[in-house]
Design a protein around this nucleic acid. Sequence first.
DNA 1: CTGAAAGCGCTAACAA
DNA 2: TTGTTAGCGCTTTCAG
Lengths: 341, 341
Amino acid sequence: MTRTKKNPSQNISIVDVARASGVSITTVSRVINKVGTVKDSNRIKVLNAVKELKFQPSIFAQRLATGKSNVVALVIPRYEGIFYSFYALELIRGVGTMCEALKLDLLLHLTDARTPLSLRGVGGIIFSDIIGNRAQLEDSLAKNIPCVVINYYVDDLDVSCIAIDNAGGAENAVNYLVELGHRKIAHITGDVMTQAAAKRLEGYKRALEKNSIKIREDYIFQTDYSRGAARSAAENLIKAADPATAVFVASDAMALEVMAVARELGKNIPQDLSIVGFDDNPSGLYGPVGLTTVRQPLISMAEESVKELNRLIALKKNVPKKILLPAELVIRESCKPFVAR
Amino acid sequence: MTRTKKNPSQNISIVDVARASGVSITTVSRVINKVGTVKDSNRIKVLNAVKELKFQPSIFAQRLATGKSNVVALVIPRYEGIFYSFYALELIRGVGTMCEALKLDLLLHLTDARTPLSLRGVGGIIFSDIIGNRAQLEDSLAKNIPCVVINYYVDDLDVSCIAIDNAGGAENAVNYLVELGHRKIAHITGDVMTQAAAKRLEGYKRALEKNSIKIREDYIFQTDYSRGAARSAAENLIKAADPATAVFVASDAMALEVMAVARELGKNIPQDLSIVGFDDNPSGLYGPVGLTTVRQPLISMAEESVKELNRLIALKKNVPKKILLPAELVIRESCKPFVAR
DNA sequence: CTGAAAGCGCTAACAA
DNA sequence: TTGTTAGCGCTTTCAG
């Protein structure tokens, strides 16, 4: 009838502590959880026993008893290349840091959008981006699991989200080029299936319009964020009959590729072509010419998402908040004022 | 006495399923866990009820009852810049993938080496590297928690480890340069406090010795893996009175910096200087000259570590295995045969 | 301020 | 093949 032996590394339970300190397990529980009232002398006895026995409460028992979970899942769609992206790491870093600060456990879940989530025992979920895995989000919401979406502005669902003002950032970037005197400004987009890329394109167009510059479709090069696509876009851009004098590129990784292509084709950056990227990826610092770019506050976005999730969990009901974080221009050396020649 | 209400998203328990399918909870448990023998007709009833009620067993109750945890912690020392490193992401990717395959939960724990680990309820720990956090490893081992160390060969502790043959990889790289006719081969080290960097230096020296090339201390440039250090090393290397014709650099990130410096100083790669890196970081593909490098099987290392940990957990005792994975040379365009001029 | 005792949801002997 | 039942370790009434 009696159970044989439990986990040898965790075998001291609240019972042992109670026995050692001569009080009831209830009292031990009280001092562990810092709730209720316990006579000081007793508290001290318990605390000593805890230290003595190296007692660590079992999270499983705690969670079983309370019905609460301190686990936060970070769901990252495992799309091609995500793991080579600066973005993912920053996210994990930010979320991880804040989870630790808030004493939450972080469960990293790499998902392909297709399979339904089966995150059991999770207190809340952070969805990084929504790329084809909207169903997972809706499911979780339906199950009343606290959710927050990060890096995607969801306006048609009752869910907290925290995203970056991609359109605004793009607009700033293009405005800057205009201020430098450029009128022929091209744009190399990312994968416009993603919200970020679509918004960046939107911001590009808006900036041109506001500056009364005609939008030329032959100056817009659509890519899928891949290096290959960036390369051919760059070639077309540079070899064009009436080439642009500046280009706003939807990611730093691609912007670097554009720089490389330009050099190969004998062009100097920024003399022959001004380039602005997006991301503030540290690789943008590599090489002779620092890349001017738009900084995404990824870390703070990630951190905020955990805070927001925590708020939702504490609230015990879904009172969504929608947050848009500004994206700031970082000026380095890859742009020069336009001079006619 | 009765508890008010539990987690509203998880409120159907094994009891409900038992009731709905007209069997005992034990039988339900049996079919859930696919153990024991259950009459087919009953199994079907249960399965239907499970589907009907959208029942999901509580992992906390399961773990409480079994005393087992399916959580695997990946402990990554939060050293400066780790989150900008290709290495960390690859690791997380590999470990994450394998955890999913093995139905394990992944707890990502970013630690500073100083604070003792407090990973409660974890079934096993994967230590990524051992940089100053040896105490954490020893502690966990003492607590009988299954551990495996990844990317660090531990020969003085009874623990499973899986590392990359840094010395061998370095040796291959240098041998390759020798085969190309180079005799003046420099080395830019990483932070030799890390095992990887130390081993790479060791491999470099060994290759030279085996080829009867005298080791010149003025050809060895020590760095801390940082870009700044790489830059000044590169400058000294190139501007030296009797400059090396080839250089083996301890990381791709630094090798790229060396390339950049060389270009700035008017040198051509590979005509004026042959370069081999280490990592096979995708950024090595950027730019006009593909970087010849040593590929670390990071992903398989990460995957193997989870398998090994799983083995240890199943074994219920510590029967360590030490694994060393080969590192293979990837030849691209950054090296040329040496020709006297 | 304290303790007894009833669960939390599940697993695993054991008996049938 | 199935069901009964005693825990797993902790929290939380409720009654002192």
